[in-house]
Structure formats: structure tokens, C-alpha cells
Design a protein around this nucleic acid. Sequence first.
DNA 1: GATAAAATCGACCAATTATGTCGAATAGTC
DNA 2: GACTATTCGACATAATTGGTCGATTTTATC
Lengths: 221, 221
Amino acid sequence: MNETIILETAFRLFTTQGIQPFTMDEIAARLAISKKTLYRFFTSRADLVQQVCRLVAANFNQALEEADQADADNLQRVLSHMTVNMDFCKKTSVAFFTDLQKHYPVEYTHLVHTLNNFIYPRVLKVLEEGIVEGVFRGSLHPQLVVTILQQHIQKDFEFAAELVNDYSKDEVFRQALYLFLYGVIAPEAIPRLENELKKYSFATRLAQPKEIQQIETDQHK
Amino acid sequence: MNETIILETAFRLFTTQGIQPFTMDEIAARLAISKKTLYRFFTSRADLVQQVCRLVAANFNQALEEADQADADNLQRVLSHMTVNMDFCKKTSVAFFTDLQKHYPVEYTHLVHTLNNFIYPRVLKVLEEGIVEGVFRGSLHPQLVVTILQQHIQKDFEFAAELVNDYSKDEVFRQALYLFLYGVIAPEAIPRLENELKKYSFATRLAQPKEIQQIETDQHK
DNA sequence: GATAAAATCGACCAATTATGTCGAATAGTC
DNA sequence: GACTATTCGACATAATTGGTCGATTTTATC
């Protein structure tokens, strides 16, 4: 048994289903190891949680850096940044954050701070450059917009968690994304935006039943 | 404060986020009442859980009865039954069932039994009639198919919960639904099925971004 | 507005549950 | 077979949570 396997298992369980449902006994049982072994690699539960948080942050940053690698203009960059963020929100259960906030408040604050510091400076920079370039509306106050965006995403995240009922998480984030993009884009750049969005439509379209498209085609015959 | 409000709050919290995350203190706090008041309406936590389960069952049955009201043939009935079931799966968090199974095993068994008894006899009857009518394949063993269906849905439910990551719950259940429908339908009734499915497409289409449709239309200009 | 009854509060206790420890057992190496 | 490294799971201790109860507030009635 090694540290990586334990950490990755904990990461998967915690981020998808929350921290509290998994006791140290439970985790050890799932890995088919004893608690003693578990405590050999992680000095305490708090230690395990902290390392999972680091992994969360590292993954998020890595996704952003990969997005940055691509040769892209400012419109494309803001889109890819937002997509990374959206995917992160979809992948991560709110339970993870609520459990973290309640039981490891310091760690929670730190993680949120870290995540924000990864994405918002990037978005800010791209917004500022894009405004100069004319792709985003000149009336935008970039710093303020980024702060507001930060608030909105947090709310959407909580909202999506409670409303899995009627709308899919997917749809909530997609709508919020569009709201933001059309909110910042300069009117004359709208066609460009829609063209860029089309490139992303493949990913979002996975959620659309092929059967129905088929049926419609049949109808048109 | 009255019993209904408490019960409905607990119902909403439990079914969407699981039972264990909500202590009696937490529930009381959310309702802005004291524990004493809470215990005036529900003699124990087990009592509250039990009543929530009854409400779950009642809602499920009501949805099925409403579906039965409509004047429909056997194909339409099987579709509406399956849709009710699918919606129920989408609305209800797995955490609710896993918590129930672990901490209130008797209640769990009873609820599952009750839910199954609501839906599967209905599906069985419609399948049997539909086979005679020729809308479903004559080679089907209805009783066996229903039992298998029951197993499959349970698995899909667990699966959907773990994979919220990459696919939306929506899509998992939709694919499973199509798999079942095309699995039982008689080849000659496929056009009818596809026609019926089209009526449901509105509901499933909510998940499709209007913007993208718009963009596509623009492209075609 | 005085009095009684009903409802509410939240501190408290007891029981459950979880974390973290430790001696014993097992596996591997020379 | 002796020595080391690793694993096991029972157990003690700490933390959490279900459930109780007297004190207090609110409501109803005269």
C-alpha cells in the first residue's frame, strides 16, 4: 500500500460525496487496509483532508495551465477559463465544500482563497486586454466584474446542488456561463463569440439524446 | 409551527442531500425552532425518517396514478410509467437511500418494497397486455423482464450517483430508458414508439441550450 | 390586566460514534 | 531461526448527537 493510492481514493470519495460520510474506518475498509496502516501515511484525519485539498487545488491549477498552453486570443481564453471552472463545479460535490467549511474551517478558507487566486487574476488580465482590444464592452469595470463573477459562481454552485431536482447541474452552469459571456461581450463581437461557442457545443451536446435528433430527421422526411 | 412544514422541510433535505448530514439540531435550526418543538411533532428521529419515507412513497404513487388517469394505450402507459420512475430517480439523491439502508435498515427494506409494489405490477400488466396486442415483442417473458428491469434501474441509480462527474444524471437515465424501450418494443411498433418519444422530447429538451440552436440556425444562413 | 394553559426555548445528560493508540501477529530477509 | 518491517483490529478516549426537562415566553380566556 502506498500514499498515492490512499490519497487518490480519499480525493475521489471526498470530492464526489463529501467528507463526513467517510470515517477513517470506512476509508481503511474500502482500501482493504487497517487503520494502523492508514495512520502510517497520514498522521491524522485533518492531515488527510488537507492533502486532499492540496490535490484539489493542484488539479484545478493544472487544468487552467493546460488551457493557457493553447495559442488563443482573449475571447478564447476567457471561454476556456470559464469552462475549466464550470467543469470543476460540475465534478465537485457541494457536500465537499460544506463539510470542509463546517469541520475544517481554516482549510476551507485557504482552499477557496487558493482556487480564487488561480482563476480570477487570469480572467481579470484577459478581460482587461480584451476590453482594450474591443472584444469586451468598454463600459466594464474589470476588477469589479471579476469580483461579481466570483460571487455569482459561488451562488450558482450552491444553487445547483439544491436543485438537482428539476434541472441538471450541467444546464445550470451552462446557462450561467452564457449569461456571463453575453454580459461582457462587445455587441460587435457577438458573432465571434457565437462562433467560438459552437466549437464547445460538441462537449455540451453529449447531453442531448441522439435518438431525438434521429426522430426529428425522420419526421422531416 | 406545524407538522406539515417540518415534514416537508425534512423531506426536501433528506431526499436531495441524504439523511445523515442533518442532525435534529440542524433541522430545528433551519426551521428556526427549538428541539423541544421539533420533538413535540415527531417522537423521535426514527419517527421523522419514517414519515418522510411515507411521504416519498405517497408522492411516487400519486405521480403514477396521475399518469394512469390519462387515456392511453399500452405503449403510452409503459412510457409514462417509466418516465415517472426516471423522474423519481433524478429527483432523489442516492445518499437518501444509502443513509436509510445503513441507519434504518427496516425502513429501507419497507420503502423499497413499497415503491416496487407501486410500479412493477403496473408495468407487468401493461407489458402483458401489450404483448397480446403485438406492440411488444412476443418472445418476452413479462414477469422476468420486470424483475430484470427492477435490477437494472437499481444499478443505474447507483451508477448515476457516482458518475455525476462526466455525464449528467439526466443523460444516464434517458439512455437507460431508451435501452429498455427499444428492448421490449416489437419491430413493427418502432415507428409508433419513436412518435411517442417525440412527445416527451419537450421535457428532455429543456436541457438543451437554446443559444446553440440559434447559432446553428445562424450558421445556415 | 390577571390567570391559566399551551408552546417554545436551549442547556443538559446519556448513548452512540469516531478518532487515534497499542500490543500482538504476520510477512519478508538474511 | 532471528531480526526487522509492516499490518491487523480491539480498545480507550474524545467528540458528536439524540432525546429530556425545568424555566420562560406567548396565547387564550375571563
